[in-house]
Design a binder for these strands. Sequence first.
DNA 1: TCTTGACCCTGTAGTTGCTATAGGGTGCAT
DNA 2: ATGCACCCTATAGCAACTACAGGGTCAAGA
Lengths: 134, 134
Amino acid sequence: MQIGELARTTATKVETIRFYEKIGLLPEPGRTSGNYRDYGAAHLARLSFIRRARDLGFTLDQVRELLTLSDDRSRSCSAVDTVARAHLAQIDQKIADLRALRRELDELIGQCSQGAISDCRIIEALGPSAQNGH
Amino acid sequence: MQIGELARTTATKVETIRFYEKIGLLPEPGRTSGNYRDYGAAHLARLSFIRRARDLGFTLDQVRELLTLSDDRSRSCSAVDTVARAHLAQIDQKIADLRALRRELDELIGQCSQGAISDCRIIEALGPSAQNGH
DNA sequence: TCTTGACCCTGTAGTTGCTATAGGGTGCAT
DNA sequence: ATGCACCCTATAGCAACTACAGGGTCAAGA
Ligand SMILES: [Zn+2]
Ligand SMILES: [Zn+2]
Ligand SMILES: [Zn+2]
Ligand SMILES: [Zn+2]
């Protein structure tokens, strides 16, 4: 299987596959006589894993850790659980941050009376003397 | 006012101030005889504006646009409103995306029975044959 | 046989928004 | 004169790709 087909199968750009290889996430495949990369089922499996984990928002470092863990089939999966739960906590934090932001911005927009810039509460609130009471 | 004081006043790193100058967001200040940057009230006001907008999650391009708009005091602020509402929509989208992610991940974690890796539903779900029904 | 076109290769630079060095100069106090 | 805090420029690094530039490979069609 050459890189283009692997890319289509996993909905990944060709450049991204080469990038994963360069950073050691995806093992180097064999080469054809014409120096084309030649992938097999194991590569497809590994890349699918990477992509799914990325879709779930894991960082590449976390993906690397999950891959290492998953390669040791006999050990307990509590380490996997730990990685996953840490990621969940990060997501919760991000959601909370964004909600606070959203509240601020919404409040600001609600005060804009669509007049001249010099009266605009949005611009005013961004100005140097504005105090943010939150 | 030299750069360190401006940095402390606006809770910005010195390097960040120089970076804003380099990308044309903050105008070049005058220099002292010893080639130190010398800032005045206008710079402080502008940097405060930038920082507040960044805190609200606007991108540097959006900040640039807001600054340009705010410099024309007589025009209508509807353009400002447009930028702010677009940003709000982006935030809402991000929150929605993160919530969907969170739901997926939470579901996955709930299925992990803390056994061996080979039985772990998290690892399994990341594998190549896993179908995601969502 | 020659050429076209789709595919592949390497290597490097760009993206966003900073941050962190390295290797110096300035200014003031002791 | 020496220390120290502060400043200067220039460059490289971070995440996680993405986009070239400038080539090589391979199968099909005229
Ligand atoms: Zn408020
Ligand atoms: Zn307004
Ligand atoms: Zn699910
Ligand atoms: Zn498990």
